[in-house]
Simulated scan of single mutants.
Amino acid sequence: MKKVIATILSIVVLGVALCGADYVLKDRTDHGVKQGIAMYEQPKNSVDVLMLGSSHVHYGINTAKLWEEYGISAFDFSSAEQPLWISYYYLKEFCKNQKPKVVVLDFFTPAAFQEDHKYTYTHLADSLNGFRFGLNKMKMMWVSFDGREEIWDKYFPGFAGYHDRYDALDAEDFEDLKYDYENFKGFTPYFDMTPTSVPRINEDTVLAPSDKSVEYLQKIVDFTTASGIELYLTVVPYHVNAELVTDKIQAEDLRYNWLAQYVQQLNDAGNSHVFFDYTVLHNWDIGIDFESGTDTYDSSHLNYYGATKFAHYLGAHLRYIYGADVIADHRGDPYYASWDTNAEELRTVVEANGFEWR
């Protein structure tokens, strides 16, 4: 009996030690890991609008502005270069504790990332390390790793990906341990200003995304339909086709043209819960200033001012399409006080970086 008890205690101590080391050593990046950690800390059934997609989302959709202007309780559950198969499992995980009324899905990654993309496996840690272990995560890894053994070895178990960060730990890592992630809503403002040219769109040619992207887009459509969730597809403004991969233009606009046709076919077939706002065809409605750099962090991302402009536009458009009956104004409700705190924290960050709170 003593040996059994000793064995059990040893296993428990080892488990606690590994969990503690895992929690401390985890690299809490702003590009998905913090978003994942914070997702689990949100008050139950408090998020009405869920944002999914790549870094375009957490750079470009200002949740504090959506709250201050419209009382919309939104959350950016995004991660660097997030493909649709990860968006799908993010959505399923999110809906374990939340009942979003609307899912806003940015389509940049499936438009830009095809089978030969240079970043296909580069940013997986940002998507995986904030996501709790369970069946959803195992399925997400299975579809993300494409059977490549070296990627499994790198990310499974999760501790394998960051067990060697001992030398890199600093005071900020330990400060993060004390932060109340309920107050973080995913938006991560950036403050550089980089002029770029106004995007030009080829509206005449259509090119489908990868078969895998099309498959998981349909899974997202089916899941939101079955769950009674409105699906709002969009493109957070950026300079389209700025990147090169394997010495060719990524041709994202051609895949946005495909998406417009795909959604139209769904609507014509009676599925009215899917909507596509092809924003980069009417950037003037949003007011993004590309050429001066006032609103752009780089050619592919908005800065704080751009994210604020886009949130102002997006909030008004969501309210116009779905109405206050679907997306309520929760300002003044103590259950949603963490959105007030989030706005206060962001104001401090914005002003500390020499920008105006807008």
Rank of each mutant, 00 (worst) to 15 (best):
V240N: 01
N202K: 11
E252I: 03
E230H: 13
A251Q: 10
D277M: 13
N271I: 11
I229P: 00
T224L: 01
L217C: 06
E252A: 06
D192R: 06
V206I: 15
K248H: 13
I249P: 00
Y216C: 02
L217Q: 07
N267R: 15
T225C: 00
N241C: 03
Y262S: 04
L177A: 09
I220V: 13
S210F: 04
Y278E: 11
T225S: 06
Y278F: 15
V198F: 09
A251K: 13
Y297Q: 14
G293S: 11
F275L: 14
G287T: 12
K248I: 01
Y238H: 08
A269T: 00
F174I: 14
R255V: 03
F276Y: 15
T224N: 03
V235R: 03
E230M: 08
Y232F: 15
Y256T: 05
D285N: 15
N241S: 02
S227M: 04
Y262C: 05
I229Y: 05
D285W: 05
A260E: 13
Y179Q: 13
L231S: 01
S300C: 07
L217F: 10
S292H: 07
T224H: 02
H273L: 01
I288M: 04
P199F: 01
V280A: 00
S299M: 14
E215T: 13
V214N: 01
F191K: 07
Y256M: 12
L254V: 03
E175D: 09
I220D: 05
F275C: 08
G186F: 00
Y297T: 03
I249W: 01
V280H: 02
K219P: 07
T205I: 13
Y256H: 10
N271E: 08
D268L: 07
V198S: 02
E291K: 08
Y179R: 12
V206F: 11
T246I: 02
D247I: 01
I286A: 02
T196E: 06
F275A: 08
S272L: 09
L244V: 03
F275I: 15
Y232R: 14
E215I: 10
E252D: 11
E291C: 04
Y181C: 06
V214F: 08
Q261A: 13
K219I: 09
E230S: 04
P189Q: 13
S272Y: 08
V274C: 00
Q265E: 15
S299N: 09
F174W: 07
D298P: 03
T279H: 06
G186R: 03
N267M: 12
I201K: 04
T205R: 07
W284D: 12
P199T: 02
T205L: 12
D285P: 00
L281R: 15
V240L: 08
Y190V: 14
D285M: 08
K212Y: 10
T188H: 09
D277I: 15
P195G: 02
D285A: 07
L259N: 00
G270A: 00
T294N: 11
Y297I: 01
N257G: 09
L281W: 14
T188K: 07
F184A: 00
K178P: 01
G270N: 02
K178Y: 04
A208N: 05
V245G: 04
T205A: 04
T196M: 06
D180L: 11
D176F: 15
T225N: 01
S300Y: 14
E230C: 02
D289P: 11
Y181I: 13
T279Y: 10
T196I: 08
E203Q: 09
S197Q: 10
D289V: 14
D247S: 08
F223V: 13
V214I: 15
T296E: 04
Q218F: 05
E243V: 02
L266M: 11
D176H: 14
